[in-house]
Design a protein around this nucleic acid. Structure first.
Ligand SMILES: [Zn+2]
Ligand SMILES: [Zn+2]
Ligand SMILES: [Zn+2]
Ligand SMILES: [Zn+2]
Lengths: 164, 164
DNA sequence: ATTGGTATGTTATAATATAACAAAAAGAGG
DNA sequence: CCTCTTTTTGTTATATTATAACATACCAAT
């Protein structure tokens, strides 16, 4: 997945500010810091990895960030739809799809088990089928979790020799 | 979800024995005990809930089961496709769909957030769409996780007054 | 019987997440 | 600006989920 990641970050941050304003929610410096850590690249990080980076970034400060700090920031960012959780590995990544006004949406994550990269895609088709299935037995859907684990195109190339 | 649960358990156990034989894997008493605990009803249990029940069942024995005992049994049952994990709540439930020879399959779990019941369905349509999406960017799928959280038909009925 | 693989028992600890409460900061209204 | 209320942050402790490591027991095949 090669792209202009600087621009990618810029767009995401602009959207984050916008959606926070719209919802009258406060994207405080701490929350922003966590978001930036996750935007750093397209990988999912565990809460304690985020904590480490947060500490690295705040060596000058008098206080050392603690776990609740990270989890609170994540709660906020998840709520705003700016970050998603990879349930199958208890890790978190910054949303990377173009969104309309509202930040909240169903994410479909493709997680590479070799390099750890996460590709997020919209999932209208699969989700539609899933809703149809739910309807067949009267299930009312609140939340959909779709995760796909495997190998990204890059890692397949790099490991071609395995298949010879 | 009303059905003949006695028969439901019987069928599942028979299948478990069969698939273990076929794969030359050993469905030992401990593993069987954990499976039976999960078959008890169509809910997902956490590993430590399973542990408690296991302890209750083995009060007579000299030894008290420990966490690794549960996790090892779960690893086995997951591997055999006899049990699935609900990634979004770190819990486990016994597979409840009719399966062909091989026990391993993609499960689609509908989890009621009110009563905790899990309905498992086959998900061919959604999964097909998901594979198609993966193909568009060369992603090689190893594992698919599909979980749907919401309210089952029963709980909707019982809470109708909420919507008045 | 010996051996090599598999399963279990046991202890300790790692990794993930939250409770609870105090202090500080921010926003709303006068 | 001052006060009140709500939200956010700091801090300590602890709950919850999962695995490492190593010893022992079991089982099956030579
Ligand atoms: Zn990018
Ligand atoms: Zn997203
Ligand atoms: Zn049943
Ligand atoms: Zn199943």
């Amino acid at each position: 997945m090669s792209h202009n990641h600087k621009k990618c970050i810029k767009t995401s941050l602009e959207f984050a500010h916008k959606v926070s304003q719209d919802k009258a929610m406060r994207l405080t410096p701490q929350r922003l810091q966590v978001l930036k850590i996750l935007l750093d690249d397209h990988k999912a990080l565990g809460a304690y990895e985020i904590l480490e980076r947060l500490r690295d970034m705040n060596l000058a400060s008098q206080t050392t960030p603690q776990p609740p700090t990270v989890y609170r920031a994540l709660d906020f960012l998840l709520e705003m739809g700016l970050v998603h959780k990879v349930e199958s590995q208890n890790s978190y990544y910054a949303c990377m799809i173009e969104r309309s006004a509202d930040g909240v949406h169903i994410a479909q994550a493709f997680i590479c088990e070799s390099c750890g990269a996460v590709e997020e895609k919209t999932a209208e088709a699969s989700v539609k089928k899933l809703y149809e299935k739910a309807a067949t037995f009267g299930f009312e859907v609140n939340q959909v979790i779709m995760e796909c684990r495997g190998f990204c195109a890059n890692c397949q190339k790099q490991n071609e020799f395995f298949y010879e």
